[in-house]
Nucleic acid binder design. Structure first.
Lengths: 124, 124
DNA sequence: CCGTATCCTTCTGGATACTG
DNA sequence: CAGTATCCAGAAGGATACGG
């Protein structure tokens, strides 16, 4: 995605999509929705995320008030991440979308297959 | 966004976000939700989209069965794009998300401001 | 009018190495 | 353990030119 332009501010939903549309934010939030979790624990369970992107993603979410960060007074220091009420309210609103995906994934797959054969197949 | 990896298929909502999370798909769908529209008309109203990205985006949406393409038998040839019922059902499901964005954009902005001062400010 | 093809810049994000 | 810094490959996307 390129840098956001002026037009984007016109649509509030764009702000949300910019926040959760990337590869990892949603996955991290879903994981944290199950309960608080520490950095490396998240890293293990998310599978495939690089240390850098987990760090970047968590910072982003924390900045937007969707995730909170707590340094536990232990030695060695542990850091626990928790989904905030705001974060919970967001993933709740994502539920209809998930249901749509489940309900219509068959239709989309079929549309794709039909499109691919129609475009690839030169037989008119 | 990087190329999708194996893990992504585990989450149906990822498929949806990959479809509407990019910069233009949503804007195009919102525009088409108002009614059928031709290529250059879309291009004018979307403002900022390049000819290439409009073409790519429309093809993507058409492939997924969210938009249909009709070549009108006029001279010069005109092409009309229409949001399918499937496409309509998807943007309907986006409404709760839009409402969330509107309702909480203040909270997010405040969280951001607080975060920025806290991180930037070396006091403590 | 409606696109596709090519080029080239910009941005994303993984790998790696190093701090508190 | 929990990150940050640097480097670099690859993908996204705008500009431009050309075809149906």
């Amino acid at each position: 995605m390129p840098a956001r332009r002026a037009i984007d501010h016109a649509c509030p939903i764009r702000d949300v999509l910019d926040r959760i549309g990337d590869a990892w934010s949603l996955l991290v939030m879903i994981e944290l929705a199950k309960g608080p979790c520490r950095f490396n624990a998240l890293r293990r369970v998310i599978d495939g995320i690089s240390q850098r992107m987990l760090s970047v993603t968590l910072r982003h979410l924390e900045r937007d008030g969707l995730v909170s960060r707590a340094v536990l007074p232990t030695a060695p220091p542990q850091v626990e991440y928790t989904l905030t009420p705001l974060g919970h309210s967001l993933i709740d609103r994502l539920e209809p979308l998930r249901q749509w995906a489940v309900a219509h994934q068959g239709a989309v797959r079929r549309a794709r297959a039909e499109f691919d054969t129609r475009v690839m197949d030169p037989a008119t």
